[in-house]
Amino acid sequence: MVDGDRRRAVVFDFGGVLITTIANQIGNVAADLGVQPDVLHRVLLGPRGSTPDHPWHRAERGDLAVASIQAGLDPWAEQAGIELRGDEIDRLLAPGEYTIVEPMVRRVEALRSAGVRTGLLTNTFAEFRTTMQRDLDFSLFDAVIESFAVGARKPEPAIYAATAAALGVAHSDIVYLDDFDQNLEPALTLGWTTVLVTDPNDALAELDEVLGRGARTAT
């Protein structure tokens, strides 16, 4: 990174950024149930933002075991008028249902080689850590911030504060890539620069623009 550029850290989300989104699995499950994917997304993964009592959100904070998520979904399904079969969470988390987004991983490597601090910031479960470490080299990151370990999940402010502290940089020095706009809003409020990821190549091009020509690295 060029001298004088104050953006000294780039932080990446995991699902939907470094790996393909689980929205694909939700679509498949929704088709089998005959419901709209966005409706099922709210039932299985919780409403937009964060709630204290949705089982998926509780598991991401480390308050609930993953094995207990399915049993806690009935009130949410009933409210949405959906009858679940009981295997929805297992299907979402089944191995082999996502792929690594290689251009994103190569960019992490290139940034780290260029002396830019890198971070991984993800809502995830304690039970999923082994799988993440199998599929992604954690040594690529100066800091790995997992919601279950922090006890807070995006978009709750505490996890963003924990990220800046772990990286040892000011909020204004962070660029953050995430595929959910609601997760970017608190970061923007704190002074982070954000990139919404819908297409990996477009997001990387935007990252290049954010960092400036002197900070560009090969993909």
Rank of each mutant, 00 (worst) to 15 (best):
F128A: 12
G46F: 08
I69H: 00
N123H: 05
V2R: 15
G191H: 05
P157A: 02
D179Q: 10
G214T: 00
R117D: 03
I19D: 04
S113K: 12
V10M: 10
A158T: 09
T118S: 03
V197L: 13
V195N: 05
I100P: 07
R58A: 03
V197N: 09
P157W: 11
T21I: 09
A161R: 11
M132R: 12
L64K: 01
R85C: 05
I174E: 00
P55K: 08
V66Q: 11
D208L: 04
I82N: 02
T130E: 12
A77C: 11
A187S: 06
R106C: 07
T20P: 01
F138I: 00
I69C: 04
V144H: 05
M104N: 09
L188D: 14
H171C: 06
L93G: 03
E78T: 12
V105R: 11
L111M: 04
E83F: 01
A164R: 02
V39E: 13
L207P: 03
G62L: 04
V175R: 10
A215V: 00
T130S: 10
V175D: 07
A164W: 06
E60H: 03
A80M: 07
E78N: 11
D32L: 13
L167Y: 13
A67L: 05
E83A: 15
V39G: 02
L33G: 03
G191S: 00
R107C: 03
G4F: 11
A71C: 01
L84D: 07
D202N: 13
I82R: 09
V150D: 01
D179C: 08
T130A: 14
R91M: 05
P37H: 15
D181V: 13
I82A: 08
V169E: 03
M1P: 10
V11W: 01
V175P: 01
R85A: 13
F14G: 02
E185Q: 14
E206Y: 02
L45S: 13
Q79N: 12
R112M: 00
I82S: 00
I145K: 05
P52G: 04
A215N: 12
E206V: 08
D202F: 05
G15R: 07
T131Q: 15
V116Q: 07
P200F: 10
D5M: 15
L92R: 06
G96A: 00
V195R: 01
A30Y: 08
G86A: 07
E146N: 06
Q36G: 14
F125W: 11
F148K: 04
Q79P: 01
V66G: 03
R85I: 06
L64C: 03
G34L: 11
D74K: 14
V150R: 00
V39K: 12
G81H: 12
E78H: 14
D63W: 08
F138G: 00
E60N: 07
D135V: 12
G49I: 06
A203T: 08
A161M: 01
G49H: 13
W76D: 04
A218V: 10
P103L: 02
D32V: 06
G96S: 02
A71N: 03
P37D: 13
M132K: 13
E206T: 15
